[in-house]
Design a protein around this nucleic acid. Structure first.
Lengths: 347, 347
DNA sequence: ATGAAAGCGCTAACAA
DNA sequence: TTGTTAGCGCTTTCAT
């Protein structure tokens, strides 16, 4: 069953059917009505392959993620799927699992299916693969980084705001001893978060202590290891920020096991605000980066490049906001008399 | 850049290029070599749209899930993606979010993109939508249920084995007081699990207590509510099985908050063995249903229908195994002297 | 074993 | 405003 059947049924030419479906305004109302009726009756769906072939537009975007089983990504995918479908696009998901070979395969799949753009949401990025895409003039968006290019846009996450809010929040509670478990520093986004943290400390006039700043890997296991190490080293800050929630949850687990209470002994702040953050014990105070905002920014950026909508001449900048979500993993520093409503720092 | 460029480059006809790419055996070795060289040099990828249009085969499968943010599904998706890609297929993911309207939209998307089959992995199933697919002769697979049909196959999960193992394990430890938090009983898979549980109790000669058998909804929140209710009701079994891990984790959380210890006060068994199960405290004993096995079964079943490989005449049956994974949420019943290595039940 | 050519279902340029 | 027609890039007869 194809466009010809519809045309026949509606007693018009196939061109009229095509025009009707595509919303060309010059179609006569009456004819359009007949066409829609025929479509309805026959339960006709246009053939996407044929459409794509002739128009050169697949209405397909690639979405490259690090690891679909990391809770961060399904939330991102959900948001992306939603906007994409709203706008008549489909998405091709590729999960690289931190493996360059799989990443390469993903890129290949995207090219083979002629995606009109790729959102690169992986933590690490392999240069050569992106050149493959760039050479085929496939638009791309990246989080934070990404080589600038005619068809490439970065999504700028406002780490500073959220992390400053977190540090400020702790400072107000009376904290002066801060620790930080970063993400893997080979990743730009980990660097940016850490830099934002250090900058925030400076703002409140606290000098960072080297042994309280360690490098994790953004996994739960990594968070546990870092916390174990810090505990073994003997001294503990009163407040600990983590580069993502999984790390914070790992740290939390180790603290609990060691008989230390959160937030009474140590205040803990994560980053991302994954769903799980709300359900650990105690619920995690964290810097929220909305996966939905990120997904929408990625989609809109991609679409505006793909559809050549950047009329204004210079490419638009896409920003993703962050904000502190206060839950129950932060409190007064240990040794503080915290009975009253107002903070009363010992010293 | 298209097949003609390759043909020209290799000084052969486009037909030969096509044959070479598709592995038609009659192609002369030397010509094939030239073709591959040209493909390599030009960095040529066949156009999937054109291929699909002429061959009628999209090499696309739909994967319908309930909610991509439920940790069960990403693991399933990962497995499905892996097999699919290995076999040159792509997948179109549709997340219904338990919303019939979204489900309907998903089905529409699948049809529009001409998927060659749909794996329906959602918990609930809307009859009419499946008829839409069936009427277009789209092969389908279902977990547990699914109306039989020429192009429809059920994936039979062996709930009984895993759940019997779980109950047996508890019985050996000395438990005689069993509770069960089921999934939503409007779903066939919840019914089957519960039936398997009751059957297992019968096997060990224990009569189920009605007030210890409650209906949950397979969410963490639901598990918490059920546990709260059971606690409020006053009496508690010594062992509690849950219809899935999220439920068990919810129950665990409430138990912990109430000052009850697992497994000292209550033994707990989940179902699914999601990644998280290993990382809660204590690590959860659970019945493992491998998402990978399930995904592979779904893919293979779909493929064998789509490619008409069921030579044997009668459709093949696809089974998915389950097995108990013992961790640390199960132990001797409370009130038992469990100091020795051997079990020593009081009575 | 290879090539020429028809045609998959659709859009868009052109003609009427 | 509508219809006729060329062709998107490929696979697959059919003829050689």
């Amino acid at each position: 069953m194809d466009i010809r059947d519809v045309a026949q049924h509606a007693k018009v030419s196939i061109a009229t059917v095509s025009r009707t479906i595509n919303g060309v305004p010059t179609v006569d109302k009456e004819l359009a009505r007949r066409v829609w009726a025929a479509i309805e009756e026959l339960n006709y769906f246009p053939n996407t392959q044929a459409r794509a072939l002739v128009s050169g537009r697949t209405r397909l975007f690639g979405l490259l993620v690090s690891e679909i089983t990391n809770p961060f990504f399904p939330e991102l995918i959900q948001g992306f799927e939603e906007v994409a479908v709203e706008n008549g696009y489909e998405i091709l998901i590729g999960s690289t699992n931190y493996d360059p070979e799989r990443m390469s395969l993903c890129v290949r799949r995207m090219i083979e299916r002629s995606v009109e753009g790729v959102a690169v949401m992986t933590f690490g990025v392999e240069q050569p693969l992106l050149e493959e895409l760039a050479s085929r003039r496939v638009p791309m968006v990246f989080v934070d980084a990404g080589p600038p290019g005619e068809l490439v846009r970065p999504l700028l996450v406002d780490y500073r705001k959220g992390i400053h809010e977190g540090v400020q929040h702790l400072a107000v509670l009376g904290h002066r001893e801060f620790g930080y478990i970063s993400g893997p520093l080979r990743h730009r986004s980990s660097q940016l978060r850490k830099a934002a943290f250090l900058e925030a400390l400076e703002t409140i006039g606290v000098t960072p202590r080297k042994d309280w700043i360690v490098e994790g890997d953004h996994t739960l296991e990594g968070g546990m290891q870092c916390m174990d190490a810090m505990l073994a080293a003997g001294s503990l800050p009163t407040a600990l920020l983590c580069s993502n929630d999984m790390t914070a949850i790992g740290a939390l687990r180790v603290l609990n096991k060691a008989g230390l209470r959160v937030p009474e002994d140590v205040s803990l702040i994560g980053f991302d605000d994954i769903h799980l953050a709300e359900f650990v014990n105690p619920p995690l105070t964290t810097v929220r980066m909305s996966r939905n905002d990120l997904a929408r920014a990625a989609f809109n950026a991609l679409r505006s490049i793909a559809e050549g909508q950047e009329l204004s001449g210079q490419p638009r900048t896409w920003r993703v906001p962050t904000a502190l979500t206060v839950r129950q993993s932060t409190g007064y520093p240990r040794g503080t008399d915290a009975v009253g409503k107002k903070k009363r720092v010992k010293k």
